[in-house]
């Protein structure tokens, strides 16, 4: 899976460079997030602006990241969801679980 990572304003930003987040690459994303958390990067932002399709396993990988960040008293924020991707979060009510910002630029700095 093509992911770029950078540290900005106290947060680690993962930008997914894939059009699809599905059962083919969601396991890799889940492992990647877990490794970052284990390495002490506990304030994560997932930039989904490039993702135009997400399936149930993609949602599951993000939920795994959210739960594992919470266990470490970290934060797990999503940004840049395209409308149809956003609608999948709404249908499954996960938009009430995640902190979601319209774009990376609107994610507040971490204290």
């Amino acid at each position: 899976m093509n992911i770029s990572t950078e540290n900005r304003n106290g947060r680690t930003i993962l930008s997914l460079k894939e059009e699809r987040l599905d059962a083919h690459n969601s396991g890799e994303l889940k492992d990647y997030i877990l490794k970052l958390l284990e390495d002490g990067h506990t304030r994560l932002v997932i930039d989904l602006s490039g993702v135009r399709f997400i399936d149930s396993s993609g949602l599951g990988a993000l939920l795994s990241g959210y739960k594992n960040a919470s266990l470490r008293s970290g934060s797990f924020v999503l940004a840049g969801l395209q409308p149809r991707v956003q609608s999948m979060f709404e249908l499954t009510r996960l938009h009430r679980v995640f902190d979601i910002y319209p774009s990376l630029g609107e994610v507040p700095s971490s204290n």
Binding site: S57, L63, Y66, T92
Partner: peptide
């Protein structure tokens, strides 16, 4: 699925 439970699986057939 129980949508209020944060299970990582179980949404495929729901979709």
């Amino acid at each position: 699925p129980n949508l209020d439970a944060l299970n990582e699986r179980g949404r495929g057939i729901f979709f």
